[in-house]
Design a protein around this nucleic acid. Structure first.
Lengths: 196, 196
DNA sequence: ATTAAAAACTAATAAGTGTTAGTTTTACAA
DNA sequence: TTGTAAAACTAACACTTATTAGTTTTTAAT
């Protein structure tokens, strides 16, 4: 049978991981068997182990790739010299674009992390907690500088992160709205509300 | 060994379903074994089958209970003679309260429905699609009556439903915010935004 | 064409899955 | 106390799981 064919700049491990993202998203981590993954890759299950260490290693790779992308962007944004509202807007837009461009991976990181095992589970949760804290601090800064209403900042972060994550629904109804409208209207809704 | 002890007004099937909700939430449907569920109930696995038909029947019961609760409330609210904004606010509050009072079941319905099999899977998705359509119609009515900004109504529904669903994060950080503040601030954020 | 490494293959293992069959125990009404 | 139905039990099933061992095929450089 044919070997796994990676495209340019992609190892075979990358190909497997990419297929795994798609399957984990559709069926969930636990319900995806290595035999199914192998079939999607075009290979027998044991052959996968020439390239990867284990099933759980795949989940780890996906989850931490996503987590690191978000952390990196946030850290970069924090150090920019723009208004707090602009920083928040940029972060919201980055989240939206990650959902649109790396949907499978982000979905898996959002939903399947619970199947990580320690120490990876703890690491992942710590990283996310730290991310949320930085966002809360950003909102607090916006309140202090009178750019934002003094809502509870934690609730604001919760509302924003959740709304953005909800784009996973949208992936099922793509036809209704263009990505441009989606991004702008969601940013507007989250920053300015819907009431006239 | 002791028999399953249902409380008042609860059949043994109810007890099993309730424990199943908790386990499905924590571990996911696929990763929860009937032996684990049995242990949580205090019984050997085969004994469960004196009360239930199958594992998937449990998932069906949980998902459709939740779906029906939401549908019923929405239908009731639609027929009330109050402003559109008030209807929307009521619905948001109902979602928040469902998340707070029936967290396990709502979480499972939100995350584990994909493991339903047809015809239940189709039924569930149809019911949810229909729910979303009614909400979109409500937002459109609010725009027509000039109560709401003319954002894309589908994006608004998406944003609201997602934000509310995001309360599942909050369940992990309960200590930070009171339920009263949470509910009011989230409603405010979603209706009026955060910018001053 | 030869060789060495990479990566595929088949076969197998031990553990875990939901569920059924058949039996024993429990609970409760007569 | 006895009889009956409900609900527990043990044992077992057919299947699926991730993974390993061992072998053969493919790839690519010499």
């Amino acid at each position: 049978m044919a070997k796994i064919k990676p495209g340019k700049n992609a190892t075979k491990k990358d190909v497997i991981t990419h297929k795994a993202s798609a399957l984990f998203k559709i069926k969930g981590y636990s319900s995806t068997s290595m035999r199914e993954l192998a079939e999607a890759v075009g290979v027998e299950a044991p052959s996968l182990y020439n390239h990867i260490g284990s099933k759980s290693e795949l989940l780890q790779a996906i989850c931490f790739k996503v987590a690191n992308d978000f952390t990196t962007y946030l850290d970069t944004t924090e150090n920019m010299t723009v208004s707090t509202v602009t920083k928040i807007e940029n972060i919201i837009r980055f989240h939206i674009q990650m959902m649109l461009n790396n949907f499978d991976e982000v979905f898996v990181a959002n939903h399947e992390w619970k199947h990580l095992r320690d120490p990876y589970l703890s690491n992942f949760l710590n990283q996310r907690r730290s991310y949320e804290k930085k966002l809360v601090a950003l909102i607090e800064a916006g309140i202090k500088s009178k750019e934002l209403k003094s809502n509870n900042p934690y609730v604001s972060v919760l509302t924003i992160l959740s709304a953005v994550r909800g784009l996973e629904f949208w992936q099922r109804h793509k036809q209704n709205v263009s990505t441009r409208v989606l991004e702008d209207d969601m940013v507007n809704h989250l920053l300015k509300g819907i009431i006239k």
